[in-house]
Write a protein that binds this DNA or RNA. Structure first.
Length: 511
RNA sequence: GGCGAGUUCGUCUAGGGGUUAGGACGUCUCUCUUUCACGGAGAAAACACGGGUUCGAUUCCCGUACUCGCUACCA
């Protein structure tokens, strides 16, 4: 059975992929790989009004960046294509017709305006909600209430209509959710959902069932927002005669806001300063750019690891997982039922862990993809700096600021100079520069040795010269150790910086 | 409102009729150290509430509260 597992990630190209969508894709990927099954990418673009240019390409690039490969999809094809619903349009109508023919669906001619009026009338009558259901359909304009002749006439005249599911009046619809267990809903709670729209396109409900059947999908792993409409889908499988082929369902918990109530949104990202999209997104309408995890200096493996544990947990206490380890350990049973609050600090922690695992060379290469990369320095030099930086930064983004002293000489401000006078730096600086320049060959070990003897010979305390040196060399009070800094900058550059500082100190020192 | 689904440290979560309720992030303390970090060692910190069932409930059952989702010719 394992080899037959087929799952799909079916996003709607209405904008950039949300981080919650990435997690859904991830869980589908893990499940597919775990069972040596196939993962399908299917683009659900049945709402022509909500299509956003570039969204599909964005989704594909995001999955690629995350390392979530799929076996069938719009860009790579596959035996059950096409994988865009817009290219499968001719398929859906026959199933809608079949449902009508078998008495499981019907034509409805109510206009949007009529529906709205009925909604209002119901509201005035004290009803809390309008539902096009077993009761309501008797008073609406449809093939159940109109005469056969009139229905034929309307159809023939080209008047707009939709096809609605005919929900049985009094039955219990039940299904087993792999995460939540048995779910039972009475058909009275369901409404006669539109299956086929007046624009000639199917709705999600019809298209998703038809495609999952045709694509031989075995497990539908999707967000919790679909749980409520699953009974309708179950009914559709039954009406279409596909009940034996109905996939298993697993509804994932939602990702919630870091604070307050509701699910995570782009606004939360703006408000708290964290990304909610995997990659940068340029709004085609406004041109506004929103940075993603990639641009903010996250490593894809960190994002994946973080997302994997947001709702799912392994058997043991391991926290750090490579993708292949996740595949090995993954199971639907260990998915938490409750929604998970988004925690950016934890995401940062994961990133830091993965940053530390990368070599300086790798990090330099990654940094080089950012516009702020310090050009004009050898890759070897930058790699040395990165090796130091990776312990001090959680995101590559932070390299810009923390790494700056290694690429720009510090500006010695008046305030800084005063501080130096307090420490009487001028007294020993000349001797220190001499000792430094005399180092031959120059190495970290030699430097450390020199430092020790310098302190010994001068009688100065480490605490009285190191902070000063760091200030003169890097321009910061808190930062890398002086030995690390000097050994990376090199003898010449350090000497030059110190001599420059020395000149600045001179006039005052002579007073 | 109706229906569905949830609810263990601040957060992500483990666990499950009898446990010192475990881990991780964050916080705090100590340590390392020339500073800040990193690293190492610790600490504080949770079973939403009320009823049952039971010798015993955080765990099982029922309510309540709260949260989320659905309630579109959107997905």
């Amino acid at each position: 059975m394992d080899s037959h597992v087929r799952v799909r990630f079916a996003p709607s190209p209405t904008g950039p992929l949300h981080i919650g969508g990435v997690r859904t894709a991830l869980y589908n990927y893990l499940f597919a790989r775990k069972h040596q099954g196939r993962l399908i990418l299917r683009i659900e673009d049945t709402d022509q009004n909500r299509l956003v240019a570039g969204a599909e390409a964005y989704i594909i690039e995001s999955l690629r960046w995350c390392g979530l490969s799929y076996d069938e999809g719009p860009d790579i094809g596959g035996p059950y294509g096409p994988y865009r619903q817009s290219e499968r349009l001719s398929l859906y109508r026959q199933y809608a017709d079949q449902l009508v023919a078998r008495g499981h669906a019907y034509y409805a001619f109510d206009s949007a305006q009529e529906l709205e009026e009925m909604r209002q009338r119901q509201a005035r009558a004290g009803s809390d909600s309008f539902q096009y259901d077993a009761v309501m359909r008797r008073v609406m304009k449809n093939s159940l209430t109109l005469s056969t002749a009139e229905v034929q006439q309307r159809l023939a005249s080209g008047a707009p209509y939709v096809i609605r599911a005919l929900i049985p009046e009094d039955i219990e619809v039940r299904f087993t959710d792999l995460i939540r267990g048995e779910v039972v809903v009475h058909s009275r709670q369901l409404d006669d959902k539109v299956l086929f729209k007046s624009d000639g396109w199917p709705t999600y409900h019809l298209a998703n069932v038809v495609d999952d059947y045709l694509m031989k999908v075995t497990h539908v792993i999707r967000g919790e927002e679909w749980l409520s409409s699953t009974p309708l889908h179950v009914l559709l499988y039954r009406f279409l005669g596909w009940e034996q082929h109905m996939p298993h369902f697993a509804h994932l918990p939602l990702i919630l806001k870091p604070e307050g109530t509701g699910k995570l949104s782009k606004r939360d990202g703006d408000k708290w300063g964290f990304p909610v999209f995997p990659l940068a997104w340029t709004d085609p309408e406004t041109g506004q750019i929103t940075l993603g995890y990639r641009e903010r200096g996250f490593l894809p493996e960190a994002v994946i690891n973080f997302l994997a544990l947001l709702g799912w947990h392994p058997t043991g206490n391991q926290e750090l997982f490579e993708l292949y380890e996740l595949v090995h350990d993954f199971s639907l049973e260990h998915i938490h039922k409750g929604g998970a609050r988004f925690d950016f600090d934890k995401a940062r922690w994961f990133n830091h862990e993965y940053l530390k695992r990368r070599s300086g060379e790798e990090l330099a290469a990654l940094w080089a993809q950012r516009p702020s990369y310090p050009h004009g320095f050898s890759r070897t030099y930058v790699a040395q700096v990165c090796e130091l930086l990776k312990h001090r930064c959680s995101l590559i983004e932070e390299f810009d600021e923390v790494g700056r002293p290694f690429f720009e000489r510090p500006v010695l401000t008046a305030e800084l100079k005063n501080k130096l006078h307090e420490h009487q730096a001028a007294v020993w600086l000349t001797a220190f520069i001499e000792a430094l320049m005399a180092l031959e060959p120059f190495s970290k070990e030699a430097l450390e040795h020199m430092m020790k003897s310098f302190l010994k010979n001068s009688g100065l305390k480490a605490g009285s010269i190191f902070p000063v040196l760091r200030l003169l060399i890097l321009g910061v009070e808190q930062g890398p150790s002086v030995v690390d800094a000097i050994s990376i900058l090199g003898k010449e550059e350090t000497g030059a910086r110190l001599q420059h500082a020395q000149k600045m100190l001179q006039p005052v020192a002579e007073n």
